[in-house]
């Protein structure tokens, strides 16, 4: 998958704009936007991670919010027990998400189609109800939490620093995804999406590759959860609600399934739209719904897919 020059430039410009956000909005005295954009970037990571399995692997996970919740609970629960070391929390967020993704994936990947969707959904609802029943950690009221502590120079209490940390993670996740998709492993995952029987016939034991992709995707979403808990200073089972899984999936659809960076754009488009339109009416989904239908009908590869493609047909 190659990037066209146009897309390369758009990404570069987007990055520069994001870097300029904190000073610009502070100058305009609209610091609320630092929090909003931080939140959007976190969901961009979640959408990116979902696209790895959804767009490239053809695995329709309708339970991706599970890892958002797990990542955030790693921060909340550890902080509750006064373990505030950010590296440790991040490690637990990624590791915990990976283990749960391994278990869920090992079960779901024995099925396909609608069963796959339903089981990923059911598993995530299971985690949601476990979250509600954890009275010690706030149950359905949620749990206020402190921000992670890194070495002194990364003070997450500072909104600017948190913003740039999230931006850094977003860029890192985009770069890792890019390498992954173009690697031998990525080719196997994409091949499984297109024609799994053929992949087996030419000698790939497809199950283990798909399972690992599922685990990588879950772990990456766990990072988003870790960041979300830090941004909101609060963890709640709501992060794992199926509604959240649906929103992440919509971001992927809006940006473009299987376009790698499209979902990042999709997260911005969806959450900015929500932010702006919900200022006019609280029934904003009434407007968004038909727009989504139109988009899916007329632009199967989302807004990012509307841009010209590179010659080999991908990218």
């Amino acid at each position: 998958m190659e990037l066209t020059r146009l897309k390369g430039w758009l990404l570069a410009i987007g990055f520069v704009v994001l870097v300029a956000v904190p000073p610009a909005v502070t100058a305009m005295d609209e610091t609320f936007y630092i929090t909003l954009i931080s939140r959007i970037m976190i969901f961009a990571i979640a959408a990116l991670s979902l696209d790895l399995i959804l767009g490239f692997g053809g695995m329709i996970s309708f339970g991706h919010a599970a890892y958002l919740g797990l990542g955030s609970y790693a921060v909340g629960i550890l902080a509750f027990h006064e373990i505030t070391n950010g590296w440790l929390q991040l490690f637990v967020a990624i590791g915990g998400s990976a283990v749960v993704a391994l278990i869920i994936g090992a079960i779901c990947l024995r099925t396909s189609g609608i069963y796959f969707i339903m089981i990923t959904l059911a598993m995530t609802q299971l985690l949601f109800f476990i979250g509600i029943s954890l009275e010690t950690y706030g149950g359905d009221d949620g749990l206020p939490t402190d921000r992670s502590e890194f070495a002194a120079f990364i003070d997450l209490g500072n909104e600017w620093i948190l913003f740039y940390l999230i931006l850094g993670f977003l860029v890192l996740c985009m770069y890792i995804s890019w390498r992954l998709i173009n690697s031998r492993f990525g080719m196997v995952i994409r091949g499984c999406h297109e024609n799994e029987a053929r992949m087996q016939a030419i000698g790939f034991p497809t199950y283990r590759y798909k399972l690992l992709a599922f685990v990588i995707s879950g772990s990456m979403c766990g990072i988003a959860g870790f960041l979300l808990a830090n941004l909101t200073e609060f963890v709640t089972p709501e992060f794992m609600h199926w509604f959240r899984s649906g929103e992440i999936m919509i971001m992927v659809l809006v940006g473009g399934m299987g376009t790698l960076f499209g979902p990042v754009v999709g997260a911005f488009a969806f959450l900015m739209f929500e932010e702006i339109i919900s200022g006019f009416t609280e029934n904003w989904p009434v407007i968004f719904g038909p727009l989504l239908v139109l988009l899916v009908l007329f632009a199967k590869q989302g807004v990012w897919g509307l841009l010209p493609k590179s010659k080999a047909g991908d990218g």
Partner: peptide, 19 residues
């Protein structure tokens, strides 16, 4: 190339571009 990749052992290689 995908067929050739299949015969060259496992494909748990995540970094180098296959193309």
């Amino acid at each position: 190339a995908l067929s050739i990749q299949a015969r060259q052992g496992h494909s748990f290689r995540f970094w180098k571009p296959a193309a």
